[in-house]
Design a binder for these strands. Structure first.
Lengths: 104, 104
DNA sequence: CCAACATATGAACATGTATTCAACTGTTGA
DNA sequence: TCAACAGTTGAATACATGTTCATATGTTGG
């Protein structure tokens, strides 16, 4: 059980904010969908059966937290996971979910 | 950029739910405070300047998601982080927050 | 250049939820 | 045993936010 280093004010604000963003099912599905390969907005909307508008709203927030990064390619904007830390905590969180519940 | 394995329905429900729980500043502060060492409810309430009732409410939710684990010791119940995966994604998330923003 | 496409934005609404207050349960030291 | 302590619970409320609809911006192929 290692301790977490003291956090700056900036970090104490951004940390819960970033968790909160992933707390919405639609938004998390969008993020997870982008771990596969870069996806355009309409592609995401079609694949996940969400409105284009909603996907755009969510991507804006995900971009703001630097969880995804979009690059324009002709008419489309392809979104992908921003950095490897994002993959890392997604995998860790999935591992936690899968952890066996032991009633001691 | 590795892909995330396909998730079960159970996981697709619990994953955002767990993120959501950490999205609240008070709740996250409580969890972070428990990474240091096991803490009693009143201890947490005093240290973080939150009401005992509020801390109890939040701990109930954190327990439900197996993010913390409490053990009774005489009158007090000492809460600690549940498993190492919790520490892992906290550290990964902090690393993401600290990642330099590069405008490419 | 412009019609068609791709994405973004703003307001409005409906739902969810963090916090407080009050009361309750359970534990132990004297 | 019982008064004092530690923690839990439920209802009520004030606030936040996800989603939709309509519209706007921006880009490109023909």
């Amino acid at each position: 059980m290692i301790g977490i280093e003291p956090l700056s004010h900036h970090e104490l604000v951004n940390l819960p904010e970033t968790f909160r963003l992933l707390g919405d099912p639609s938004r998390l599905r969008i993020l997870l969908h982008c771990t596969d390969a870069p996806k355009s907005v309409t592609q995401i909307a079609d694949d996940l059966d969400l409105s284009q508008s909603l996907v755009s709203h969510h991507l804006r927030l995900l971009r703001g937290a630097r969880l995804v990064r979009g690059v324009r390619q002709s008419r489309h904007i392809f979104y992908r996971i921003s950095d490897q830390h994002v993959n890392a905590f997604l995998i860790d969180m999935i591992a936690h979910i899968r952890e066996e519940h032991c009633y001691s």
